[in-house]
Simulated scan of single mutants.
Amino acid sequence: MLEQRLLEKAIGVAGRLIAVEPFGEGSIARFTVDSGEHAGEWFVDSSKQAVPVETGFVIRSRDGVVVARIWKHPLDPRLPALRTAVDPERIARISAAADSSGPVEAKVLAYRPGRRAVVRLTQHGVHLFVKVVRPGEAEDLAAIHEACRAAGVPAPEVAHWSPAGVVVVRDATGTPGPVAAARMPAGELLDAVDALRERLLTVETRRIARASVGSRVDWHVDRMAGGLPGRASDAQRLLPALLEHVRREGPPRVVHGDLHIGQLFFDGGEVSSVIDVDTAGLGDPADDSAAFIGHATASAARNQAAGRDGDAAQLRAIADAAADRWLRDPHTTALTVLHLLGHGIRAAERAPGAAELLLDRALELARVAAR
Rank of each mutant, 00 (worst) to 15 (best):
R5M: 11
K9Q: 14
K9V: 00
A10F: 07
G12P: 08
G12L: 15
V13P: 03
V13C: 02
A19E: 15
V20H: 03
A29L: 11
A29N: 04
R30G: 02
T32V: 15
E37L: 13
H38D: 10
W42F: 02
V44W: 04
S46I: 11
S47Q: 05
A50M: 06
V51I: 09
T55V: 00
G56D: 04
S61M: 02
R62P: 01
G64H: 02
V66F: 06
R69F: 11
W71G: 03
P80M: 09
L82C: 06
L82W: 01
L82P: 00
R83E: 09
T84H: 03
D87A: 08
P88G: 08
R90Q: 15
I91S: 00
R93C: 10
I94W: 02
A98D: 06
S100L: 15
A110S: 13
P113W: 01
T122D: 00
T122P: 05
F129S: 04
K131R: 15
K131G: 03
A138L: 09
A138H: 09
A142H: 11
A147T: 05
R149C: 07
V158Q: 07
W161Y: 12
S162G: 12
S162F: 08
V168D: 02
R170G: 09
A172H: 08
G177Y: 01
P185W: 06
P185T: 11
P185D: 14
A186P: 02
E188M: 09
L190Q: 13
D191C: 11
E198K: 14
E198T: 11
E198N: 11
L200C: 02
L200F: 15
L200V: 11
L201G: 15
V203D: 02
R206Q: 14
A209G: 14
S212W: 11
V213E: 07
S215L: 12
S215Q: 13
D218C: 08
D222L: 13
M224I: 12
P229E: 13
D234F: 10
L239N: 10
L239D: 06
P240R: 09
A241Q: 10
A241T: 08
L242N: 01
E244P: 03
R247T: 14
R253G: 14
R253V: 15
L259R: 01
H260S: 11
I261M: 09
G262K: 04
F265C: 02
G269I: 06
E270F: 07
E270L: 12
S273P: 01
D276N: 13
V277T: 09
D278M: 04
G281Y: 03
G283D: 03
D284N: 13
D287S: 10
A290Y: 02
A291M: 04
F292T: 00
G294C: 10
H295C: 12
A296Y: 05
A300T: 07
N303S: 12
R308W: 09
G310P: 00
D311H: 02
A312F: 01
Q314P: 05
Q314C: 08
D320W: 05
A321C: 14
W326S: 04
P330C: 14
T332I: 07
T332Y: 08
T333E: 08
L340Q: 00
L340T: 00
E349L: 15
P352W: 07
P352I: 07
A354G: 06
L358Y: 05
D360K: 07
